[in-house]
Amino acid sequence: MFEKRDSYTPAEAKRAYDHLDQLVARKTLTPRQAGAHRRHIASRVRVALKPSYTPQAARRAKTEIEKLTEAGTITMKSAAAYRAHITKRTQAA
């Protein structure tokens, strides 16, 4: 079936989402059950943040945050908090 974990990296969350999609396709889980698992995963995704960013690294990090949001791996509120963290810690050029 599907095993829940205490925390997920973004890559692990994406794999878990893909696994849930497969389980729904095989009719092992209902879409409603899969949705509950997705909410569980989304609330436990951890993103590694650095203490400071160069402007180029900040752009890359924000792009990655945007990709994670579009994939549904992290929530909109979490993405906004991560972007604010990155902006606050970006070194002035």
Rank of each mutant, 00 (worst) to 15 (best):
K14E: 13
K27R: 12
H19T: 14
R32F: 12
A34N: 08
T9Y: 05
R32C: 03
K14S: 11
Y17R: 04
H37Y: 15
D6T: 02
E12V: 04
A25W: 00
Y8R: 03
V24F: 01
K14R: 14
L23V: 13
S7D: 05
A34I: 09
A36W: 13
H19L: 13
L20C: 11
A34L: 12
Q22D: 15
G35S: 15
T30Q: 06
A25Q: 12
S7R: 07
L23H: 02
R32H: 13
H19V: 07
H19P: 00
T30H: 02
D6K: 02
A11M: 10
Q22W: 06
K27D: 09
H37W: 12
L20N: 09
A11Q: 14
D6P: 00
A13C: 07
R15E: 14
A36N: 14
A13R: 05
H37N: 11
A25R: 03
P31C: 03
D18S: 11
T30W: 03
G35H: 11
Y17G: 00
T28E: 10
Y17W: 08
Y8W: 09
K27G: 01
R15T: 09
E12S: 09
S7M: 05
K14N: 06
Y8N: 06
G35M: 10
A36P: 00
L29P: 00
Q33G: 03
H19C: 06
H19R: 13
D18I: 01
A16L: 05
